Simulated assay, not measured.
Amino acid sequence: MAVLIQVLLPPPTTIVFSNSFSTKLILTRRLRCRISNSSEVKSDEGAPKLEYKPGPLDDFFMQSFRNKLVEEVGSDSEKPGYVGLIELVKLLLLKGRTRSETSDAAVRILKSLFPPLILELYKLLIAPIAQGKLAALMVARVTVLTCQWLMGPSKVNIIDLPNGESWDSGVFVEKCQYLEESKCVGVCINTCKLPTQTFFKDYMGVPLVMEPNFKDYSCQFKFGVAPPEDDGNVNEPCFETCSIAGRRKLKSGECPLA
């Protein structure tokens, strides 16, 4: 993917890892990515606010994702662009008879977007390095570089790990347009949060917990952190405006349990 990345190195200290293939992976302790198609602007209150400008690869990413959704759902939406994409996601949720079925289908879609060999090599060669730190830092940056068309403005940030360490392997989504457009907690939980966590852990060897905020639509990704056994987000009630609950003739609070 021809994406422009400018890496700043403050401080210039580096850690060098060697593997059996005699290659060198250089990890800068505090990597900061400057992304050519995202920037910060000042809001009315004076606080920095992220702004995302679609790049030339965004249409490709969206169409690829949409094609995989069509294959899984079995039909396409007549609506163009992002609106049509969200309609397909809702159909995916409606198609699944259980939460597990929906999550498994979403994982299949994520897997199909990557050549299998890349996932296997990443899990085998990159994930074990430095107790998983390198892999977590890398996927955080790739997520920001390739997924803002889906989620909206986002940036890499520092997160705290359960062992007391702090890694800059987080991704903060200021206002997730996937959730905002779908207006459905069930869509967020069953087609995004749960399958994405499963995909990164099982197929890339990177633990991930996603913490959506259903009040302001923000979301915090924490690469390198495993989900808690009792994840309260999973059983959040849905919005009053949830269209899927209406189509299934359910109460709004039942939608996430699809």
Rank of each mutant, 00 (worst) to 15 (best):
K123F: 09
L124I: 12
L124M: 14
L125P: 03
L125Q: 10
I126C: 03
I126Q: 01
I126K: 01
A127P: 07
A127I: 07
A127M: 08
P128V: 05
P128Y: 02
P128I: 03
I129D: 15
I129T: 11
A130F: 08
A130M: 09
A130R: 07
Q131H: 12
Q131K: 12
G132C: 13
G132S: 12
G132V: 12
G132N: 03
K133H: 10
K133C: 02
K133R: 15
L134V: 15
L134Q: 09
A135T: 04
A135W: 01
A135P: 05
A136K: 00
A136G: 06
A136H: 02
A136V: 07
L137V: 15
L137A: 10
L137M: 14
L137T: 13
L137G: 02
L137K: 02
M138S: 10
M138E: 06
V139K: 00
A140W: 01
A140H: 01
R141H: 13
R141L: 09
V142E: 00
V142H: 01
V142C: 02
T143D: 06
T143Y: 13
T143L: 11
V144Y: 01
V144I: 03
V144P: 01
V144K: 00
V144L: 03
V144T: 05
V144M: 00
V144R: 00
T146H: 14
T146D: 06
T146P: 07
T146R: 06
C147F: 08
C147A: 12
C147M: 14
C147H: 14
C147T: 14
C147S: 14
Q148L: 09
Q148G: 09
Q148S: 09
W149L: 04
W149F: 15
W149S: 05
W149P: 02
L150A: 08
L150T: 03
M151H: 15
M151P: 04
M151C: 13
G152V: 09
G152P: 07
G152F: 05
P153A: 04
P153N: 06
P153F: 05
S154Q: 13
S154D: 09
S154C: 14
S154P: 06
S154K: 07
K155S: 10
K155L: 05
K155Y: 13
V156L: 03
V156G: 00
